[in-house]
Amino acid sequence: MIAAKFIVSGKVQGVWFRASAREQAVRLGLRGSANNLVDGSVEVIAIGSAEAVDELERWLWRGPPLAEVTSVGREDIATPTASAGFTIG
């Protein structure tokens, strides 16, 4: 099990990005969260198998249809203690 923090930039707020990321994460069996940041980006924390986290990262580069992703930064982090599921903040 691994954990990664992603910062997704571009047109990613107000386009259903967090809800769509949650759908993808749940489909992949990941735990974590998606939160809007004050600078207009979205932070996604993903916890699960390396393959699932990598697949979510590939999806984050596309996002939902209305998104225009310009960058996705990734930082591998220590696996945090998180509740089950994937939350949106």
Rank of each mutant, 00 (worst) to 15 (best):
W16G: 10
A52S: 15
A78D: 15
L28S: 00
V72D: 03
K5W: 07
S49A: 15
D54A: 15
A34S: 11
A78F: 11
A52E: 03
R62S: 10
G85D: 03
F17T: 01
E55T: 10
G29P: 02
S49E: 14
G73E: 15
R31L: 03
K5Q: 15
Q13Y: 04
G40Q: 13
T79P: 06
V42K: 14
V44S: 12
A67N: 03
R62A: 12
R22Y: 02
V44A: 12
A78V: 06
V42Y: 13
A78E: 14
V15G: 00
P65I: 05
R27C: 05
P65Q: 08
D54C: 05
I7T: 15
T70Y: 09
G14C: 15
A4D: 06
T81V: 10
V8W: 08
I45H: 07
G32C: 08
K5E: 12
V15W: 00
G32R: 05
V44T: 14
A82G: 06
A19E: 09
I77W: 06
D76T: 13
V69G: 04
V26F: 06
K5F: 02
T79I: 15
G73V: 07
S41R: 13
K11A: 08
K5P: 01
G10F: 03
N35D: 13
F86H: 03
W59V: 03
W61A: 04
L37V: 09
W16V: 02
A25V: 13
A46V: 08
G48F: 10
E55C: 01
G29C: 01
G10I: 00
I2R: 13
V8N: 04
D76Y: 10
T81E: 12
I77G: 00
T87K: 10
G32P: 01
E68K: 14
